[in-house]
Design a binder for these strands. Structure first.
Lengths: 339, 339
DNA sequence: ATGAAAGCGCTAACAG
DNA sequence: CTGTTAGCGCTTTCAT
């Protein structure tokens, strides 16, 4: 803000009423004469009045904004985050819920110890009413910091250590099974898997479910390579897998980005997908559709999960004494062309 | 915030001094006895005090946060934004400058009329001291709205219509020339170009520079296809270009993402890069390095530009009467393997 | 239905 | 060097 913005006082004078009355119509409180309402409204129009959030927050103890924190470690952190459509889906889901309620989502990045401190301070100091956090590593200290500061918090994904905090999550294990069963049903017999980073529970669970599906059908443990949820790591993992066992006829990648990387390698080597090698991804992100061929994948309803997360936080902000809750979503297999 | 947070008053009582003194040590104002400083500091420690931003902002008329607004139109807006490493670089650059100054960057998306209004209100209401805006379309109304609301603003890229606002930008035309000269120097003779969306000045300028470089060397206008700065559109444009003139031996893409798409198509068709077809991109984003082959490209120093943008805004916030300034950066050709 | 007045937590004169 | 005091702009009893 720059020049002297009009205040409630200015509007009141302009309308010939008291500050309290103006405040009432601004906040839609009943018990105000319709004529006076019009009077005030036009005065607001004329003066170009906008309520000062700081002043309002000072008395209501609520700012009408929540922090959406992407938390993790790394140098080119923002660079990595902005290359994965997953985060875009989270943002869209959160925005979808909050926008209608006039709550501002404030996107914050916490990629280092210093950044985490700043972020925690930001909400502790009342710049946000609560925090939504998406961690890209399991042992993220941020949730604990937030909890210790008594900040209403909801996580995307269950925290590594059990703690009294609300979260939404997917049944990753069930999703992994779905992928395994699909490959089996297709008739694949030399099956391999590309896992996620070892420190991320979601990736481990997906792989565990996948393995169990194979084991359940009497198959041995699949050859496995580890990726870090990026396109390149998926490609590299595929190369490694092929080197060890060139006859692979089915591959499961723990997310779509890695599945795409695997597809690229496979195609460059002249393998037909799915005829020679079937590929199943995970997430059903936008990549699944644009990938060539379009990916058969396990759908994670990220937007819905994010919206639910926002709703849970909203509820928690409204009634702080609520017990932490967990909301688990079910994955669905989406069949396209790759597997 | 949840339970009754400790206030200055609490700390003052605990330390046995006045509110003003506590305020002084919190804000690092000199003229406070070292002994008392220690006294206060330990009282702060004990009480777990954090200054309330709303209260502080109310009197200082400054909140210590700036809005970083990604502005444009579209449905899956956040999805698109989160797939282009460009925005990650902007965020990194801005954060790099602001973090050290204890200013919070608040990332906001303005993809619709309603969202724009909310965003403008957000800063008008004092939740941010100013706005940094990155538009993904030329005729973006947001800058004008911000200006009309007297919000200190700095743009990434020169606005479509001349207006009294500060901005940073690249000499896109010069960058285009660099690309054209490179392809020519390589000996390419059947040259084609993949332009950006027609409504984006940056893309037009890059293409214009490129064309002029060819014309300057006595070449005719290159075959041109239009993309929208996405990987897929780059691939599609390459396909179209090849259909019209299969003998292409040099391609310029107006950004790296499209260059990557073109490379994928070329490789799938068995063309060697750069032996059969040389490819030059634009941006020097992370993609340029991970692309196969690594891209020869025109570097746009996005991080530096973003940092400069943050600095300019900071200055403008500190001294509001400053005249708008424009800061133009020079592109540099980065030679890798593709062209 | 409206107004007067208190006060949210903080900073910034101004005294002392 | 420290304390007292007066607001910043708003919401919210409490009277009327």
């Amino acid at each position: 803000m720059n020049r002297q913005a009009p205040t409630l006082e200015d509007v009141a004078r302009e309308a010939g009423v008291s500050r309290a009355t103006v405040s009432r119509v601004v906040n839609g409180v009943r018990n105000v004469d319709p004529d006076i309402q019009d009077l005030v409204r036009s005065a607001i129009e004329r003066t170009g009045y906008t309520p000062n959030r700081a002043a309002r927050a000072l008395v209501t103890r609520r700012i009408g904004a929540v922090a959406l924190i992407i938390s993790g470690a790394g140098d080119a952190f923002a660079g990595r985050v902005f290359a994965d459509p997953f985060f875009g889906r989270v943002v869209n889901g959160v925005v979808g819920y909050l926008r209608a309620r006039m709550i501002q989502p404030v996107l914050l990045f916490a990629e280092s110890e210093a950044a985490r401190k700043q972020v925690v301070d930001y909400v502790r100091q009342g710049s946000a009413d609560g925090a939504l956090v998406v961690s890209v590593q399991s042992d993220d200290p941020l949730p604990r910091m937030l909890l210790a500061a008594h900040v209403p918090t909801v996580l995307f994904a269950r925290p590594a250590r059990t703690s009294p905090v609300s979260y939404v999550d997917l049944d990753h294990y069930a999703g992994g099974r779905l992928a395994g069963e699909r490959l089996l049903a297709r008739g694949c017999r030399r099956i391999a898997a590309i896992g996620g980073p070892a420190d991320l529970r979601a990736g481990r669970q997906r792989l565990a479910g996948f393995r169990d599906a194979l084991a359940h059908a009497g198959h041995g443990s699949p050859a496995t390579a580890e990726g870090v949820f990026t396109l390149d790591s998926g490609a590299a993992a595929m190369v490694a897998l092929l080197r060890d066992q060139s006859s692979v006829d089915g591959v499961f990648a723990a997310n779509d980005l890695m599945a795409q990387g695997a597809c690229q390698v496979l195609r460059e080597l002249g393998r037909r997908i799915p005829e020679d090698v079937a590929v199943v991804g995970f997430d059903d992100s936008s990549i699944a559709v644009t990938c060539r061929p379009p990916l058969t994948t396990v759908r994670q309803p990220v937007e819905e999960m994010a919206a639910a997360m926002a709703r849970m936080l909203d509820e928690q902000v409204q009634s702080p004494r609520t017990e932490p809750r967990a909301l688990l979503f079910e994955p669905v297999l989406v069949v396209r062309e790759s597997g």
